[in-house]
Structures are given as structure tokens and as C-alpha cells.
Design a protein around this nucleic acid. Sequence first.
DNA 1: GCGCGTGATGTCAGGGACTGCCATCACTAC
DNA 2: GTAGTGATGGCAGTCCCTGACATCACGCGC
Lengths: 185, 185
Amino acid sequence: MGRWEPDARGRMIRAAMELFAERGFEQTTAGDIAERAGVTERTFFRYFADKREVLFDGSPELVQAAHDAILAAPAEAPPLEAALAGIVAAGGILEGRRDHAVRRSRIIAATPSLQERELLKLAAMVDTIAKALHERGVDEPTARLAAHSAVTVFQLAFERWVSAAEPPDFASCVAETAAALRALR
Amino acid sequence: MGRWEPDARGRMIRAAMELFAERGFEQTTAGDIAERAGVTERTFFRYFADKREVLFDGSPELVQAAHDAILAAPAEAPPLEAALAGIVAAGGILEGRRDHAVRRSRIIAATPSLQERELLKLAAMVDTIAKALHERGVDEPTARLAAHSAVTVFQLAFERWVSAAEPPDFASCVAETAAALRALR
DNA sequence: GCGCGTGATGTCAGGGACTGCCATCACTAC
DNA sequence: GTAGTGATGGCAGTCCCTGACATCACGCGC
């Protein structure tokens, strides 16, 4: 299956990350990204539903990993524990590309419009996790509660993982955050 | 301090809710809303930062109520309990306008772009609650964890409150959801 | 009553996000 | 080599949103 230059999608993603980091998201035009990637603006919008989406390319894989890990968790694991197994699995995908994750999260932190999109992706993760728990036989209210809690742990563990000077592994960030959550009163 | 017709903001909000309910958010242009409200599109954008914002007018008051209630909670209340007091206070503002809240939430549920904005507002609530807890002397990681948990309770309690056939009071929805959260293991 | 200042509104021009439509190109299969 | 297929380019158009400037209604001092 041929094409002009290979990996147009990857080129656009890299171009976007560079430009967003250099001059900021709002100061970067979709045409700018396309130009640096060597394609047309029209092509950009064929790959990405909108300008923000270019930063959220791997999101479905993350969610899928969480889903699979939850269904693979031991049957006797309680809901929150199973959900956290999913979080750890999702984090595992990031593990190899901490550098990229750090730059990406800096860009998002600087732009409310991108934060919105990130929150929407996290909400999708909540839904998927709740669905997976429900498939395990957890009643729906409990599943949704556990899913929300697990994604909260994901968010806070991610921040910890990203901001630590000495890069720890994601799983231990999750463990620490989860312990703090259980200690809440 | 006079003006043409009074309450331009209110007219635009009502016009937007009507139109969004009638034909949907994306099928409604900013010009449509302005026209029905008897103003210009330009005026619409002077009142609201963007087309979505017209549905989130009372948001700061909600957040402020939560903040104040948290600072007013008994000093010996543990973090999560104080945060939940804030949630109940925020819910109290909605109490009198359940009808409006229901219609609004239906519109938002039908539009991803509006869900994004809602999630951003909830994130702002998380930040404010965490800040309030921190002012009470709670250490920051715990404060953020409790804030996230409290807002999760808000979301799920709100859904319960909105979807119940026989309208219960918001506070008891919060109590039930919070109990389920504490039962999570 | 009357001009004046002030704030809200209207008008206009324009850039950027996105979409639909159609032409064109590279590559594949026959 | 030719037809088919999928990716791309080009173009027109709508809508979102903004800046700049004119205009209007009102309160105020006189």
C-alpha cells in the first residue's frame, strides 16, 4: 500500500508538538503544522478530527490496555483493585516514552482548550473502566464509582511520575497514590 | 444604569437553551441565538467568551459556595467530610431550579463539545476545593485527592438527583453516593 | 431643558477552524 | 499498459471569534 512519503501521521504529530512547544497552541495554525509536515491543511484534517486531536493519538490504546487488564485481573479482586490494575497497565504504555509524555503534558498544561480535550479522554477512560468492571459482575453504581476513583489515581500518579526528578516507575506512583486514597477519611 | 431592553444576558441564555433543545448545539449558530435574544452576534460574544459558555453562567457561584462551605466546616472535620460539605452547599444552589438543571444536562449530554466544557468547570471546582482544604491545613496531596473524590461524588450524586422520578433532595443523593464511596475497597 | 461623558450596542472587516466536492496523483492488480 | 483504488491537493464556503470604530441611550451637571 504505497503513498508519497511514509508516515504522514507521525510527521504531523511531531510537527505539531514542535510548533506548540515553540510558539504555543493558539499561535500555531493548522496550516503551519501541515506545512512543516509537508502536506496540505486539508490532509491534516483528514487525519485528525480537529487541531487538538493531533496531541491525543495514542489515547484509544491506553484505554484499551486498561480495559484488557481489568478483564484479566483475578476474579476475586475487588472492584477498585481491578480498576487499578487497569491503570497500571495503561501507565505501562507510557513507561517507555516518558520524555514525550513530559513534553506533551507541558503543552497541555499551558492551554485550557487542550485541557478540555484531555479531560474528555479521561472521561472516556472512566466509561470504559466502568464497563469493564460491570462485565466482571460489579453492579453499575459501584463500577462507576471505582472507575472514577481509579482515573483520579491515574491523574495524580501521572503528575507525580512526570514531575519527579528521578523518574520512578509508574506502578509505584500508582501504588502510593492509591494508598493515600484508601487512607482518606 | 440603563440600557435598551433589560437583562440581555438572561435573554441570550434562555434563547440558547431553547435553540439547543430544539435543533441541537451544532445546528445553532451564535447568530441564531443573538437574533432570538434581540441582539447582535457581536454582543453575544461580548457577554460570553464562546458559544458554549452561555450554558455555564452560574458556574462560578457554585464553586464559590463550595469554597465557602468548606472553610465554614467544623475544624475537626476530616478532609473528605469537609469537601463533601462543600459539595452539598454547591448542590443547594441547584435545589431550587431542578427543572432548568435537567434540561441543561440533557443538552450537555447530547454534545461532546459541551461535555468538554463541563469537565473543565468540574476541574476548576476540584482546584478550588483542594485550595480550600489546603487553607484548612490539609497537606496538598491529600487535599487534591479529597477534592477529586468530592467532585466525583458531586457528578454521580447529580446524575442520581436528575434522573430520579421522585425528586429527592440533593444532600441525600450526596450522602448515599459518599457512603458507597467509603464502602469501596 | 441641554450639552457631555460613559458604557452598551451595532457595523464592518478579517483570520482561522473545519467541511464538502471534485480533480489529480501514486501505486497495484490484471 | 491500462483500469481501479486510495491518498492527496485545490477550492469554495460556513461558522467561530476578534479588533477597530461608529453610534446610541442614559445619567449628570448646569
